[in-house]
Simulated scan of single mutants.
Amino acid sequence: MKISYTLNGQKVTDEVNPAQPLTEYLRSRGCYSVKRGCETANCGLCTVLVDGRPVLSCSTLTARIDGKVVETMEGLQSEAAEIGTYLADEGAEQCGFCSPGLIMNIIGMTRELKNPTEDDIRNYLAGNLCRCTGYVSQLRAIRKYLAEKEEA
């Protein structure tokens, strides 16, 4: 099947297996920030933005991105690095395995929600599993990041 879409700002036309999970396809295109975790849409590691909204790429078929805009951390490096600094400063980035999916969800949240409450943040990021941090430091980092963004 032939699809056309935009990946990290670049127009792409490609012949794809429509049944291939988006995770596999994006990794084959060099988007290694898109990680495999549970492969059951439960951990958030594979999160990418499709038309600006977070999507679990392990449970999305490649055919579904036809005509869409897809963003991965490779295309959002400066924004991702800024968020990553807040996470690191708060001790929220220990092993780092969950960080790409978490950062992609934070970016999606900041684009969608204006002045999110603590409950909004928790609800938006509920699908991101982390075995290292216990989430307290992640929430603290996110609140500080959002506060800085508000001041700017």
Results as ranks from 00 to 15, higher is better:
6 T>A: 14
13 T>C: 13
116 P>T: 07
149 K>P: 10
128 N>H: 07
45 L>Y: 05
102 L>N: 02
73 M>D: 00
64 R>H: 14
86 Y>C: 03
86 Y>R: 00
80 A>P: 03
147 A>F: 07
57 S>L: 14
152 A>F: 10
8 N>G: 06
81 A>N: 09
35 K>V: 04
68 K>M: 14
14 D>L: 07
135 Y>Q: 01
52 G>D: 09
147 A>I: 04
28 S>C: 07
92 A>W: 01
17 N>H: 10
36 R>G: 06
1 M>R: 08
24 E>V: 11
138 Q>M: 13
48 V>D: 05
44 G>M: 07
85 T>G: 11
108 G>I: 06
3 I>G: 12
45 L>A: 15
131 R>H: 07
90 E>N: 08
128 N>L: 06
61 L>P: 13
59 S>M: 14
105 N>S: 14
103 I>K: 04
32 Y>D: 11
48 V>P: 00
44 G>P: 02
99 S>D: 01
145 Y>A: 06
88 A>P: 00
107 I>K: 02
16 V>F: 11
11 K>D: 07
12 V>L: 13
14 D>A: 15
13 T>Q: 14
58 C>I: 10
71 E>G: 02
74 E>C: 02
93 E>P: 00
114 K>A: 13
131 R>S: 08
134 G>S: 08
1 M>Q: 11
99 S>W: 00
148 E>D: 14
80 A>H: 03
95 C>S: 06
72 T>Q: 04
69 V>K: 14
88 A>C: 04
38 C>S: 12
81 A>W: 00
123 N>M: 11
69 V>Q: 15
